[in-house]
Structure formats: structure tokens, C-alpha cells
């Protein structure tokens, strides 16, 4: 019997090609194209015009608004999500409560987009359930100062609606990693419940919490569907600027503006990811 050299290294390498080709074609090429077009004008000549276009007041404003919207919903979502994770401590991991909440979180975190716009129009639109109920019952008009649902402030609640579940999904493993022994050890050594959380619970959770927070920020920052369906006028946040640029390439007298916006977004995302990995390596001192 001769040894069959099946699966030699060459054949194995060949096995990597379909995926590599796929990733190159549909991830690398589009990313490079998206970023690259920002550096060229309509005639294919290198230009910085598109990038300087990022400094236009309306564009700049859309970055600023998106940043605070992302920051606000990330912080609030992280806190609310962490509270849910905390409240699930001590419940059975395979019980109906946990499976139900994690399934619901999975759906709501992924399912943002267009549907969220409908949900919030049905709830707090002008004819919305809550709007009308508040008006009838308390004579309180949430739109006294103007209808804000279709502008940037109107995005806060819908964004929170996918941020909270995302936090639950990403933070639950860290929260479950808190060992009851730590609380018991702290107590037998003389620590109160407050001491435990202050000196052990929060510090241990901090890196994961901040990591999740950054993920939430990135999530809001790159979200498009909800805003596209909800915001009716103008392009108050960057993804809507991208849409405007894609739909009407030449309106600003500048082609490839979408590419420049893409560069702007990627810069923010890369900074976020750098912050994330810096955070990870700092925490690694005591994490495995």
C-alpha cells in the first residue's frame, strides 16, 4: 500500500482561493473603490476638492450631528442594556426568560432599518398612539415646539431601540462572567455590597462595557435605514449625505462626493476601532 498524499499543501492552498477571490471582489475592491473615488474628480484626475467638500458647513454639520446622535444613543443604550444584563444574572441560561430576551434582542438589534421608522410613526407620529393618548389624557402635546420626529432628534428613540438590544447581546457574556465567588470573597473579607460593586464588579466589567459602548457607537454611526425612512427633508446626517451624493452626483458641481464622505466615515470608524484595540490591550494586563 502506498501512502496517498491527499490534500497536499498545494491543493490546500487552492482551497483558499474561492473565499479569497470572493473577499477581494466584494469587500476589498468596493472598499478601495469607495475610498478611492473620493480622491479623484469626474475626469479621473487626482483632486482634493472632494475632501475639502467635507468641510462645507452642511457636511460638517452632518458629521457633528451624527457624532452626537451616535454618542448619546450609545451611552444611553449601553446603560439600559447593561441594566437588563444585570437583571438577568441568576436566571437560568437556558430558561425561557433568557432565551426569550436574547432572541428578541437579536431580532431588534438586527432589524432596525425601515421597520423602526414605521413603529415610531405609529407610536409618536402626529397621529401616533402615544401622541394622541398624551394629548387626550393630559392635554400634553409632544410636538408643541414643532414636529421633531422627522429630524435628527427624532432619531434618538428609534436608534435607542436597536442600541439597547445590541448592548444586551454584546454585554451579556461579560456580565455572566462575573463570578459569585468574588462577591462572596469580598463579603467574607469585610466588604459591603457597595464595596463589591465599586471595587470589583465595575472595574472588572469596565473594559467590556467600554468595548460594547464603542461597538454601539459604531453601530449608530453606520446605521442608514431608519434615517432614510424617517427623515423627510435634507440630509442631516452623513449616511443621508452619501445617499444624496449617490443619487445626484453632479448637483454640487462635484462628482465623487460620496467617496469623500466614505473616507470621512471610515476615518471615524478606524479611530473607533483603534480606541477599541487600545482599550483591549490595556485591559489585557489582567485579562487572558
Amino acid at each position: 500500500m502506498t501512502a496517498r498524499r491527499s490534500g497536499g499543501r498545494g491543493w490546500a492552498l487552492l482551497g483558499l482561493t474561492p473565499f479569497s477571490a470572493y473577499v477581494v471582489l466584494f469587500l476589498a475592491v468596493p472598499t478601495v473603490l469607495a475610498l478611492g473615488t473620493g480622491l479623484f474628480d469626474g475626469d479621473g484626475a487626482l483632486t482634493l476638492d472632494n475632501l475639502t467638500g467635507l468641510l462645507e458647513p452642511a457636511v460638517l454639520r452632518s458629521f457633528v450631528d451624527l457624532l452626537w446622535l451616535s454618542g448619546l444613543t450609545a451611552v444611553l443604550g449601553a446603560i439600559a442594556g447593561a441594566l437588563i444584563c444585570f437583571s438577568l444574572l441568576g436566571t437560568r441560561e437556558d430558561g425561557w426568560l433568557r432565551t426569550g430576551i436574547s432572541a428578541a434582542s437579536g431580532v431588534l438589534a438586527q432589524f432596525g432599518g425601515v421597520m423602526l421608522a414605521f413603529a415610531f410613526i405609529a407610536l409618536i407620529g402626529i397621529q401616533g398612539l402615544l401622541t394622541q393618548w398624551l394629548l387626550r389624557t393630559f392635554d400634553a402635546d409632544i410636538y408643541e415646539g414643532g414636529v421633531w420626529l422627522y429630524q435628527v432628534p427624532g432619531l434618538i428613540l428609534p436608534y435607542l431601540y436597536f442600541q439597547i438590544p445590541l448592548m444586551v447581546i454584546t454585554f451579556m457574556p461579560a456580565m455572566s462572567g462575573l463570578k459569585p465567588q468574588w462577591a462572596e470573597a469580598s463579603a467574607t473579607l469585610g466588604g459591603t455590597g457597595a464595596v463589591f460593586w465599586w471595587r470589583i464588579g465595575f472595574p472588572v466589567l469596565a473594559p467590556s462595557f467600554l468595548g460594547s459602548l464603542l461597538l454601539l457607537f459604531a453601530n449608530a454611526f453606520s446605521s442608514y435605514g431608519t434615517a432614510a425612512a424617517l427623515v423627510s427633508q435634507g440630509a442631516p446626517i452623513v449616511p443621508l449625505q452619501v445617499r444624496a451624493a449617490l443619487i445626484s452626483e453632479t448637483v454640487l458641481g462635484r462628482e465623487n462626493m460620496a467617496g469623500a464622505l466614505a473616507i470621512g466615515m471610515i476615518v471615524v470608524m478606524v479611530v473607533l476601532m483603534k480606541a477599541y484595540s487600545a482599550l483591549q490591550s490595556r485591559a489585557e494586563r489582567w485579562m487572558r
Binding site: A185, A187, L189
Partner: peptide, 21 residues
């Protein structure tokens, strides 16, 4: 007397060291 004032020294089965300290 609550746990934290009972003055007991306890060693657990495992994983009881505070990981960040």
C-alpha cells in the same frame, strides 16, 4: 452578624481571586 462583619477567612473551590487586582 452579617457576613462582612463575621470575621471569617474563607478559601473557595476556585476562581475566587479578583482578576483585575
Amino acid at each position: 452578624t452579617p457576613v462582612n462583619r463575621r470575621d471569617m477567612g474563607m478559601v473557595f473551590q476556585s476562581y475566587s481571586l479578583f482578576p483585575h487586582m
